[in-house]
């Protein structure tokens, strides 16, 4: 078998498969379950400054080529999330699985506040979600849309978290994602997570209505993969920091493609819908089998070969 060990910043992952933010990740129990299912690292669901119930149902719907969701950033607020993260980290450490926290906020200053609270829980990495497509009405244009706002948030969070590395999560629906990534890295991002879901809509023809209560949502699953590959590829050509390539990865072969586009680690989310929690470990095993078959001995040999 090939070696799946993954060096990511100062972290050593047993494999590059990372539970993406927003999928499960709501409790220490669930994070531990995903870790035991074989994930290399796990990301908690995004938390903001205050508790949010999220959107009313329907919040998710499956369609021909993936999912559309607008959960609405439901979360217990940073204080409660920090307590959960402390417990989750204690459970994950014996398993050797790093914990990634995820934060969002409505203003640059709030990003700093949330980051400080979360940093106190000592996650191994903090992901900065500047790209949730489902809360635009309350928070205006996503921070991920402009170099200036992406940089401002990055700088604020970087100042707030001390020595904990941060990864900035970018949106696919921007004219030049490489430039946004460069702006974030320039402002202090240690890594980039790409991508968040792609804004979309599913209309039920009989109902004559969008299905989701939020009307629009984020497209994920197989339909997102070519978009994610293009974004990761452009980011990898633009910056030198490690990338968590996320979007539509359902099989080990998909994960290999993401690494070939320049990712160092691979986020897995919607595959949990089709393949269950076992997806994380199964995709890692499939990746190892693919690498062995194709003669790649290490992840380093695979990374960026398509660039």
């Amino acid at each position: 078998m090939s070696d799946l060990t993954c060096e990511f910043l100062n972290l050593k992952l047993r494999n590059p498969i990372v539970l993406a933010s927003g999928i499960l990740g709501t409790s220490a129990d669930v994070l531990e379950r995903v870790a035991r299912a074989g994930a290399g690292a796990v990301t908690a669901k995004s938390c903001g400054p205050a508790p949010r119930a999220g959107h009313p149902n329907p919040v998710a719907v499956e369609w021909d080529h993936g999912l559309l969701n607008a959960i609405g950033l439901s979360n217990p607020g940073a204080e409660e999330e920090a307590r959960m993260l402390v417990e989750a980290r204690a459970r994950l450490e014996p398993l050797g699985v790093p914990l990634i926290a995820s934060i969002f906020a409505g203003t640059v200053a709030e990003f700093g506040d949330v980051a400080r609270v979360i940093a106190a829980a000592r996650p191994h990495l903090i992901e900065v979600n500047i790209s949730c497509p489902n809360v635009a009405d309350e928070f205006g244009t996503p921070f991920a849309a402009l170099c200036e706002s992406a940089a401002a948030v990055t700088e604020m969070v970087k100042c707030a978290v001390g020595d904990i590395p941060i990864s900035v999560k970018l949106a696919p629906n921007v004219p030049n994602i490489g430039r946004i990534a460069a702006a974030a890295v320039e402002a202090g991002a240690d890594a980039i997570t790409a991508i968040n879901t792609m804004p979309g809509m599913v209309i039920d023809a009989e109902a004559g209505r969008p299905v989701l209560s939020n009307r629009v949502g984020g497209i994920s699953g197989p339909a997102l993969k070519p978009i994610a590959l293009r974004c990761v590829y452009e980011i990898a050509r633009s910056v030198r920091v490690p990338i968590i390539g996320t979007g539509g990865v359902t099989t080990g072969r998909d994960a290999a493609e993401m690494l070939m586009a320049g990712a160092t680690a691979v986020g897995v989310g919607s595959a949990v819908w089709t393949r269950g929690v076992a997806a994380l470990g199964d995709i890692a095993a499939e990746l190892a089998a693919f690498m062995a078959q194709e003669g790649y001995r290490t992840l380093g040999a695979l990374r960026g070969v398509a660039l």
């Binding site: 999928i23 990740g25 149902n57 499956e62 959960i71």
Partner: peptide, 26 residues
């Protein structure tokens, strides 16, 4: 229940109920 697809994580049983019924965590 929210998503019904096993992804949003909203539908865990409370710890007390889960333990009383000998159900697995998560």
């Amino acid at each position: 229940l929210r998503c019904g697809l096993g992804i949003c994580g909203s539908c865990e049983l409370d710890t007390q109920t889960r333990q009383a019924a000998n159900m697995p965590a998560g």
